[in-house]
């Protein structure tokens, strides 16, 4: 009997620098599986963000460029415009994409750039040490909101998937989660669709992934999963927000 489950060719053997309980590893694997399955590794270019995932290129085994904070969609635009045959994706966190890079992501999406964005939302800045992000939940304590996010002062968390879905330009926008196996299966389907739309040169695609950061949330991995399900899922509703095809999947 042959092997029926193995590490994707698109993932390296490098030991991870991500913290215990962090879901970046799961998301990396999903992206790698999708790239393997679609057979595009030889013409894929990933764009690493600033944040924990800046080192993503240590784990993927294809060409990569490293962007500055928030600028990955502009960089991906540059690549895709001059080499439309390459498969390009940005892998960005919430501080990177939803704060300093808001302009770049909105305009790339609005121009209908034919690349894919994997947007990891863990409600906090990770690498800089757990500061408040635009996605931080109301009353959530972080190192820069030590008394909890005060929405009177800094507003409500930004729902990126819904915000970008409001643009008139056709796109595939979906929010998924990877905190439990059932969500992981759906997240993979969405990421695969996102890349397929790119390969078909149909539209911009973005998959927001609700994720955990036990270290900066001050929780055990198990508590973090529970908190994400109890606090983040009700606010960040899962499901497809916009699609060039009729939306079939219903939200949970």
């Amino acid at each position: 009997m042959g092997k029926i489950f193995c590490k994707p060719v698109s993932l390296s053997d490098q030991a991870t620098h991500y913290c215990p309980g962090c879901t970046h590893g799961v998301i990396h694997r999903l992206v790698a599986e999708v790239i393997d399955e679609l057979g595009v590794r030889g013409r894929t270019v990933g764009i690493a963000p600033v944040g924990c995932a800046v080192l993503a290129y240590n784990y993927f085994t294809f060409d990569f460029q490293e962007a500055a904070h928030g600028r990955a969609p502009a960089m991906a635009t540059g690549i895709k415009r001059v080499r439309p045959d390459l498969i390009v994706f940005t892998y960005q966190g919430d501080g990177d994409l939803a704060s300093i890079g808001m302009s770049e992501i909105i305009h790339a999406a609005n121009r209908g750039e034919k690349f894919t964005t994997v947007f990891v939302n863990n409600a906090v800045y990770g690498m800089t040490g757990g500061q408040m992000a635009p996605t931080t939940m109301p009353n959530q304590r972080t190192t820069t909101s030590p008394f909890g996010r005060n929405v009177e002062e800094v507003g409500m968390p930004i729902k990126v998937a819904e915000l970008i879905s409001a643009l008139e330009t056709p796109a595939f926008i979906s929010r998924q989660s990877v905190i439990k196996p059932k969500y992981v299966v759906r997240a993979k389907k969405a990421i695969k669709r996102a890349f397929q739309y790119q390969i078909e040169k149909r539209c911009f695609s973005l998959v927001e992934v609700v994720s955990t950061c036990p270290t900066n949330w001050g929780m055990t991995p198990v508590e973090a999963v529970q908190w994400a399900e109890d606090v983040m899922h009700p606010y960040y509703q899962l499901g497809d927000k916009k699609s060039p095809d009729p939306i079939k999947d219903k939200e949970d």
Binding site: D63, G78, V82, E104
Partner: peptide
């Protein structure tokens, strides 16, 4: 060729970076 008006000078500098990083003159 490719002509694109970017959303800001900041973004433009990374469009140049992306294009030249993948081997094209920009």
């Amino acid at each position: 060729g490719v002509f694109l008006q970017g959303e800001s000078e900041v973004a433009v500098s990374y469009m140049i970076f992306g294009a030249s990083g993948c081997g094209e003159r920009a």
